[in-house]
Amino acid sequence: MRKTISVVLSIVLFICLLGCKNNKNVSTDGSTSMELIIGALGEAYEMKTGITVTYNPTGSSAGIKAVSEGRCDIGLASRKLKKEEIENGLKETVLALDGIVIIVNHKNPVGNLKMSQISAIFKGEIRNWEQLGGDKGEIILIGREAGSGTRDGFETATDTLHKAKYRQELTSSGDVITTVSKNAFAIGYTSLSSVKNNVKTLRIDNVIPSEETIKNGNYKVQRPFIAVTNENKPLLENSRNFFEFITSEEAEDIIRFAGVFPAG
């Protein structure tokens, strides 16, 4: 008898939880690179309103698919929407911009590279620093592991997607920076927010990476962090409030805190 009661009670509780989830939570799904920014925004929103924001890190394309199929409220992507995705009734709202900087050792005399040169370097077409006006020495490409958002962003922006031939694939920005700082012929990339003084940041087409040059688009190695919504299916009240929150001025400081530049 006691057992039956407890079983019934737990089922009731479970249904209650399910019910609560359906009309209270805001679900987001998508880009793994946006973990930090959506985590910070979600936490701030929960503190403010008590509404939980869930995040499912599946990747940009999977997130876009999820929102178009109605499996989540807001999709997250670290790339612009494709034409056919917009035609399917999806709408993008740029939340933030992330700059990726190209770093070399301080001993390296090269200070500026053209976009086409960067592309050729990472594809393995240019192999020696001599060809770029530096000292004679084989170029050592330091990159990130497959699946890393920084790697995807860098390769997409420099047109080297899945073509880059790395000498080392490291698993964190810190490791990339340390390795580049220890090897005079190394070149690597990292997010602008994590770069340190022990490596040299390169200009690209003579543009210095900064908040200003990233926002006005002159610095090309960058990517947008966007929120994707479905035009055909209006947001429920909670999701709409959350969407308004993350695009508001109030969210800008939180976005900056997450290491990227608010789009506003």
Partner: peptide
């Protein structure tokens, strides 16, 4: 530069899906 069985699991687990 090489990758071991262990480092293959550890290095890509963070951002992998599907």
């Amino acid at each position: 530069s090489v990758r071991f069985l262990t480092s293959a699991v550890a290095s890509e687990m963070a951002y992998s899906s599907g």
